[in-house]
Write a protein that binds this DNA or RNA. Structure first.
Lengths: 172, 172
DNA sequence: CGGAAATACTTAACATGTTAAGTGAATGCG
DNA sequence: CGCATTCACTTAACATGTTAAGTATTTCCG
């Protein structure tokens, strides 16, 4: 486990001065944050030109792939929290990029789908978006990219299972 | 590419999706986002118990390691944008966790440092934080973790250099 | 049937991300 | 010196992240 470089100012004194922890610029959360920011920085200008934020784009992509979904399902797919999604859907609906209709069987649920305008907008953004992705793939290497994504998936899974265990423990 | 022949026929058939774009749940930004979220989900409860957000914690850690820094330098270290940092510093100062003094040589700059209270708070959070990190390291594997971080760093570098090239091109 | 509990969202409140504009203090240079 | 420019922040405005509370609907169950 994480051994740190010796700290001459400290030793093992428990109560007094704090050890500088593992250089936090190399912590996992920071590495992930910086990598993601580096990637998103490539896409944001293009999205912005089309009047879309990253999250709005995620929602449209998710909707385009499934031809209608409930809000909760959409939240899971686009990896957004409910409140964020609620706001964004309100705005996207006002811009006529999506459509909603409450389900007949269950008035609580609402089905969301992309509108014709939404599809048109996607068509205008997709080429540039794909080009950027292709550029990244080429620069970083397709094989390496696949490896990276594989590891990211494993990390996610390994931590998700940690939480499942916590929940069981919590059950009082 | 990807003209989307609107296919209303498969309303509730999740099976055959004619994919206009690469399944976006496997896109690099989503992979990074989900991995990071999985990691942060482990830390947030502990930080919250101590009344700190993730960003406030980043700032304290950065300050603890360097014993005083200018705002711009701190922004780079903690990977925060100027406006976010300004707000957070205002709040941390109000809570007496940090101290500021304007530089004598240049009145525009202000030096920020962690206060005694700030150090004390860090000392109370650090053990749990380190324990969580150790748990993650153990679950995922130290070697694999190092590999992952190595790849993330390479990705960041490879995209940063892409931007450097863009800027040169823009310069005309 | 009827009320407690669960479900599917939505609102609210606060903190941060992101871009643009503002402010006051140094600098460059004619 | 004078003054436009640059610099180091800060404010502003809008969008999202995050948690808690609210609302309407449905389901569970006696």
């Amino acid at each position: 486990m994480a051994k740190r470089p010796a700290d001459p100012t400290n030793g093992n004194a428990p109560a007094a001065r704090q050890v500088p922890m593992r250089d936090f610029s190399r912590s996992l959360p920071m590495s992930l944050l910086r990598a993601r920011e580096a990637v998103m920085r490539q896409f944001r200008p293009s999205l912005r030109e089309h009047g879309l934020t990253e999250q709005q784009w995620r929602i449209l992509r998710a909707l385009a792939a499934i031809d209608g979904a409930e809000v909760t399902e959409l939240a899971r797919t686009a990896f957004l929290l409910g409140p964020s999604l609620s706001r964004i859907l309100r705005d996207l609906e006002a811009r006529n990029l999506i459509e909603r209709k409450t389900a007949k069987a269950d008035q609580r649920r609402s089905m969301v789908s992309i509108s014709k305008e939404g599809v048109k907008l996607m068509a205008s953004v997709a080429p540039s978006s794909e080009a950027i992705y292709a550029e990244i793939t080429q620069r970083f290497g397709a094989r390496k990219l696949a490896e990276l994504q594989e590891m990211l998936g494993e990390l996610e899974l390994c931590l998700a299972s940690a939480e499942a265990r916590d929940e069981i423990t919590d059950d009082a």
